[in-house]
């Protein structure tokens, strides 16, 4: 089975990265004034996670780091060439690895689940799949 056209993969990655920016920006804005994002089905999971000491990294809100990560992924999805293919894959793999770690923290350390973090983790997983496919199918080929 042949891979989808690279343009199609780029468009999918663009959509996923833009969605990721929206989700991470919502979390960052909700937390900016000491608040927390609202979980879809109520509950205090999002608030608990937001107030956890793990919600910031070296003083930077993890959601802000997420916005930056998704913005870089958006850039790689719009650019052509092997640099963009490799960059997209490396960034998505990093984002996926960090999402796995954050999900572990939610489940076993913070003991609460934030629905928005789950959405972000799913988006990052899909981005990894799309970028891995783009890289394996098109590295070394002309754009």
């Amino acid at each position: 089975m042949s891979a989808p056209a690279e343009g199609t993969l780029q468009r999918i990655a663009t959509f996923l990265a833009a969605s990721g920016i929206a989700v991470a920006a919502y979390i960052a804005i909700a937390q900016a004034d000491g608040g927390a994002p609202a979980c879809f089905s109520g509950g205090s999971g999002c608030e608990t996670v937001s107030r956890s000491s793990h919600s910031a990294l070296a003083g930077i809100d993890v959601a802000v780091i997420g916005v930056l990560g998704y913005a870089l992924l958006l850039a790689t999805s719009l650019l052509r060439g092997d640099g963009a293919r490799m960059g997209g894959f490396a960034l998505a793999l990093t984002g996926f690895g960090f999402s796995v770690y954050l999900t572990y923290l939610e489940l076993f350390v913070i003991d609460a689940i934030c629905h928005w973090c789950v959405v972000s983790a799913l988006l990052m997983t899909l981005l990894l799949g799309v970028n891995a496919l783009r890289m394996t199918a098109y590295v070394g080929r002309r754009s």
């Binding site: 490799m86 990093t94 690895g97 070394g140």
Partner: peptide, 17 residues
């Protein structure tokens, strides 16, 4: 080229994570 770039990407991702 794929192996080289792929290895580099995986290495960078592991270091970053």
């Amino acid at each position: 080229r794929l192996v080289k770039l792929g290895s580099a990407a995986v290495f960078l991702a592991i270091v970053a994570v």
